[in-house]
Design a protein around this nucleic acid. Structure first.
Lengths: 108, 108
DNA sequence: CCTTGCGCTACAGAAATCGTAGCACTACAA
DNA sequence: TTGTAGTGCTACGATTTCTGTAGCGCAAGG
């Protein structure tokens, strides 16, 4: 880990009225959910995170990370990207998706 | 509600190895999470669902609905689109996102 | 018939994403 | 000092996805 400053994201994630809508719009962009998922075992630097996600283009990943840190779901620490306190709570809610997905695919 | 047949979706949602990855790829496409969210109070027909979601283009909505029904998360009943049995379980997991999002926005 | 509402397709333009190259920086060694 | 290796991340043209609008085919009612 070397550098660690993030410039503000340019692209607007529409400021919707209801909070949950703002969240859904954040999460339904490409790599957003995947990034949250892959950070569950601890912080990862940019390139490590990229590798874990199956090598998305760095431009896409960078933009997504910017949006998620702008939204105070992630934060950039010296050890790499990691959940904010709120982000950690969010991921707790997402973890059960794994079991669900396994049951889901079993009935194909 | 009048017609009720769905032709198979053409666009491939990549057949990833781990089930949870397949799920994440489904959910991070535009309108997917929103559609799941808006169906929580019962089935909705195409146009009603479209209105609830804030009028996405019908082509986008149609494609997303196709993917979600292909994935056996939704199904098309005479009363409209609704969760499959598995889909209903999935949405149970997503409902707590609302409370989380409210706490999230409160600290802006 | 004629209108109304439905589910949904068609298609061109706009926007997001991809793929690849590579910059600026740090650390460490030759 | 010069090099090599690794990092975070930007640039940018090609590609894919999404948007916006028009409208088809069908069913039900008047």
């Amino acid at each position: 880990m070397t550098k660690s400053v993030r410039t503000k994201t340019k692209t607007k994630v529409k400021a919707t009225k209801r909070p949950v809508m703002a969240l859904l719009e954040l999460l339904e962009r490409r790599w957003a959910l995947r990034v949250l998922w892959e950070l569950r075992d601890g912080p990862l630097g940019f390139r490590a995170l990229q590798a874990r996600c199956g090598d998305p283009p760095p431009s896409s990943l960078s933009q997504r990370l910017g949006e998620l840190t702008d939204g105070r779901i992630l934060e950039l620490a010296p050890e790499g990207y990691r959940y904010s306190r709120e982000g950690a709570e969010l991921v707790e809610l997402l973890l059960p998706l794994n079991d669900w997905a396994n049951r889901w695919r079993k009935r194909s």
